[in-house]
Amino acid sequence: MKIESLLFGAIFVFLLIVGFIYALMTHFAEFAGGVPLALVAGLALMITTYLWVTGRRVGPRPEDRQDAEIHEGAGDQGFFSPWSWWPISLGAACAISVLGVAIAFWLVPIGAAFAIIGLLGWVFEYSRGDHSH
């Protein structure tokens, strides 16, 4: 994960520099450009930190080593629920929330309530019923 953390670190530095230059060019009077660039730089820093910490904890993957063989990356890469309907309901709830921001703000709490229900259903999908572990 060293390459990924370096990539997002470079994005962080680039956005920070561009945001500062933008703020200088507008004499710190316009907040519609410099502030979002700084916020996106902060998001890139969070991803950089996560990847760096995870890379130190997990160690080098086969993709990170020059002497790795193809068969070292074979096998299960994780568990993904094949027949889950919860992502669709969560996407619809997020669409309702965004529609509420664009059209009528009273839709936002309704979308947020559906999003909480969808997220809880997705997280606890294998903790109840026939598929419980």
Score class of each variant (00 low, 15 high):
4 E>T: 06
4 E>L: 11
5 S>T: 07
5 S>N: 13
8 F>G: 04
16 L>Q: 09
19 G>S: 12
20 F>Q: 10
21 I>H: 06
25 M>R: 15
32 A>F: 15
36 P>K: 08
37 L>P: 02
38 A>D: 02
39 L>S: 09
41 A>E: 05
42 G>T: 01
42 G>K: 00
42 G>H: 00
44 A>M: 07
44 A>Q: 05
45 L>I: 03
54 T>F: 08
54 T>A: 12
56 R>S: 08
58 V>C: 02
60 P>Y: 00
61 R>F: 06
62 P>I: 05
63 E>L: 02
67 D>F: 09
67 D>I: 02
68 A>C: 04
69 E>M: 12
73 G>Y: 07
74 A>D: 10
76 D>N: 12
77 Q>T: 08
80 F>R: 09
80 F>Q: 09
81 S>W: 05
82 P>Q: 08
83 W>N: 13
84 S>N: 13
85 W>V: 14
88 I>Q: 11
92 A>E: 06
96 I>P: 05
96 I>W: 05
99 L>N: 05
99 L>V: 06
102 A>G: 01
104 A>W: 12
105 F>P: 00
110 I>G: 02
110 I>H: 01
113 A>E: 03
116 I>A: 10
119 L>V: 07
123 V>F: 14
124 F>P: 11
125 E>N: 10
126 Y>L: 06
127 S>H: 08
127 S>K: 09
128 R>W: 10
130 D>W: 10
130 D>E: 11
131 H>R: 14
